[in-house]
């Protein structure tokens, strides 16, 4: 589904290398987790995947379902099935959440040559998905993320994911800021979307989320590289011992 080959990325403004040769292949239907110390480049990877400005790819290739995506605009990547749940969802004053969701859905459908959703069908769909995530109707009426609590913002990300039904979902610390119940809700939301045609890349600091969303593979990222890959047991090892053993191992 997603194939990253020797990806090297610098900041555009200063020539500082953040990603130093990432290799990662995510099969269709699988869940991969990335853990790693603060500042190791996890969010940078997610931004580069989704096409944010400000980064320069100096080497490597990224393919989504066999197609190279690094030349595509962010909206084209999204319409091709890539979704990033932001570590810090952006507040957009003045744009209603409903307008935002409808515009996003219909833009993607249009891009793929599908018919736009009618207002009634859209409303029905949103209400249904919002209910599953315990997002109340009031929140949908407010401007995008404005005045949302940290946890509400994260749930709003998952709502968007549920509506857009992407093929490749990148979740950047979606668990941070969530209380125990909300974490369960979000995990249920993710699990409900697990499907053989859909893959996940879950960035997290905590084993706890991975209790709910069982990963097939766990990767440890440090200083712009994936230094170790393994099964779910790797996450437990991090939880118990931190990163120092792993870092020492590489050195």
């Amino acid at each position: 589904m997603l194939k990253i080959t020797n990806l090297k990325v610098e900041l555009e403004e200063e020539s500082k290398e953040i990603l130093k040769g990432i290799n990662l292949e995510i099969e269709s239907g699988s869940v991969h987790a990335i853990m790693g110390p603060n500042g190791s480049g996890k969010s940078t990877l997610s931004y580069v995947l989704s096409g944010k400005k400000g980064y320069k790819v100096t080497n490597g290739e990224v393919e989504l379902a066999g197609e190279p995506i690094l030349e595509l605009e962010p909206e084209e990547r999204a319409a091709s099935g890539l979704f990033l749940a932001f570590q810090y969802p952006v507040e957009i004053p003045g744009v209603g959440n409903m307008t935002f969701l409808r515009t996003a859905m219909n833009s993607q459908r249009k891009f793929r040559g599908e018919a736009e959703l009618s207002a009634a069908d859209f409303l029905k769909l949103v209400r249904e998905k919002a209910k599953e995530l315990k997002i109340d109707a009031e929140m949908l009426k407010r401007p995008v993320n404005v005045g949302f609590s940290g946890g509400e913002k994260k749930r709003n990300e998952i709502l968007q994911m549920a509506l857009l039904e992407p093929k490749m979902c990148v979740l950047d610390e979606t668990d941070s800021g969530l209380d125990v119940d909300a974490m369960k809700l979000v995990a249920d939301g993710v699990n409900a979307l697990r499907d053989k045609g859909r893959s996940f890349l879950v960035i997290t600091h905590y084993q706890r989320l991975l209790d709910h969303i069982k990963p097939d593979f766990v990767h440890i990222m440090a200083d712009g590289r994936i230094i170790k890959s393994g099964g779910p047991e790797l996450a437990l090892q991090v939880e118990n011992n931190g990163y120092s053993d792993l870092l020492a191992e590489v050195q």
Binding site: G51, K53, P74, E75, A78, V90, E91, I92, S107, F111
Partner: peptide, 14 residues
Amino acid sequence: EEGLFYLRARGVPE
């Protein structure tokens, strides 16, 4: 720019 990228990342053309 942050808002613009957020919208585009959800598939809304620039």
